[in-house]
Design a binder for these strands. Structure first.
Lengths: 234, 234
DNA sequence: TCTTGTCTTCATAATTTCGTAAGAATTATG
DNA sequence: CATAATTCTTACGAAATTATGAAGACAAGA
């Protein structure tokens, strides 16, 4: 068995090296590029199992690079950026990235995500890693959520969700049954430490209920677990 | 179910104490060190769930300390510094800190970030794709408790538990057969030294019985061992 | 610029849970 | 059998948690 080949694309040498160290520590081979152009050149001469791509780069930024890369192949791409908002855009749009991480990131989380992508890519085969796993339609009884088209339907009828509402609902539906505390939800959705999140999340939950529940006062889908958090009833 | 152990490393006693007060207020145990060297010594004799590390310190500064610490373990490290610029560098780089905060900081934000790091380490789930801990369903005859969904069923029928009731029941079911004294229970569930716990725990036990026992006067699950405590009958 | 839709914050209401007290009931002890 | 020790029961007010209504802040698009 040969080692996994990972390409790290970032203009900041320090970050390049940091990532290299983490990944080598996990037994992976690491190549480096300083911008999108360099990355494309490297891609022509070598095959990679995963690409880690910074968004902000000179010459060719991460988004342009992703489009170019996707023209020829679909290795998993993990995006890096300093701003959460960037990421939301990127993921919402069909840029073609498979996962993302905001700086500053936790090394362990980086490793976890890298491994996760590698696992998907190799178990499902290079062909269609995207569609099969994370992007399946999620459903709970009459409630259906499509992560790709960002559509939500209740008993066949479409309901419009705002981005935040969608993300909360997605989180709960991906892990249906599992209870998330308000702080959990805030951190996973906002990608920021929870800071006076109680009310904010509560308000969003209420709006979601208004849209998906027949009777918001007696929710059948999005339930509260007193003193613990919220969950999607199985 | 012990308290979180946090190590605060700062040469400024005032800051040490301020942080200590905030964290104790959140029910955490706090140890203190004046510099990196002291911190390392403490780390050899005690396990911590989180380390708060000032950058500027005599003897051994925060960055050196982080490197040393990372050689042996990977507890979450939260860095403190006066200058924003320092921080940006430190985070992106391979220093190994997980989060940072610039002085002067907002106490609430400190708490939020601390909690966030603690949660990151202890929670699981596909979203941050760390690994799973032992979160299996627990069952004793007709009684089933699910730590993830926080659900309890008796002969298939769901019963609603309050947070404290759930924790007590969970404690007893994880260690079924074992007898816990009232003080044991109080300390494990409340994470506080038992003071006048007798009645409090007794009341909760009764409420649990009301919910899970056919006949609370003659309990089949949650039994009392006279003069000793309570246990979950196998 | 104005409009529109979304997100956040605040104040306040509605619920649920918790701890305590006080007395009853049960079990142990001599 | 009497007494002490322990556990059980009940109920209520305080505290914590969640729900709601409404207004202001904000950003993107027309």
């Amino acid at each position: 068995m040969t080692k996994y080949q990972v390409l790290v694309v970032d203009d900041d040498i320090d970050i390049q090296e940091a990532i290299e160290i983490y990944l080598r520590g996990e037994g992976m081979e690491v190549s480096k590029a300083n911008n999108g152009l360099e990355a494309l050149l490297l891609l022509e001469v070598k095959e990679f199992h995963l690409i880690i791509l910074d968004i902000m780069m000179p010459k060719m930024d991460g988004i342009q690079a992703t489009f170019k890369i996707r023209e020829s192949c679909n290795v998993p791409i993990l995006m890096l950026s300093a701003k959460t908002e960037d990421m939301d855009k990127i993921m919402g749009l069909n840029v073609g990235a498979d996962d993302y991480l905001t700086k500053p990131f936790n090394p362990l989380e980086l490793i976890a995500r890298v491994k996760s992508q590698l696992r998907r890519y190799t178990t499902l085969g290079p062909m269609n890693s995207m569609e099969k796993t994370a992007n399946e339609e999620l459903s709970v009884r009459g409630l259906v959520l499509n992560p790709v088209t960002k559509e939500v339907t209740v008993d066949g009828e479409e309901v419009r969700m705002t981005p935040t509402e969608f993300k909360i609902l997605e989180l709960l539906m991906v892990n249906k049954g599992r209870v998330f505390s308000i702080d959990d939800i805030y951190e996973k959705v906002w990608k920021d430490p929870a800071f006076n999140a109680e009310n904010t999340v509560a308000v969003h939950v209420r709006r979601i209920r208004e849209k998906i529940e027949i009777n918001p006062k007696d929710p059948k889908y999005l339930k509260v677990v007193w003193g613990v958090g919220y969950k999607m009833e199985k």
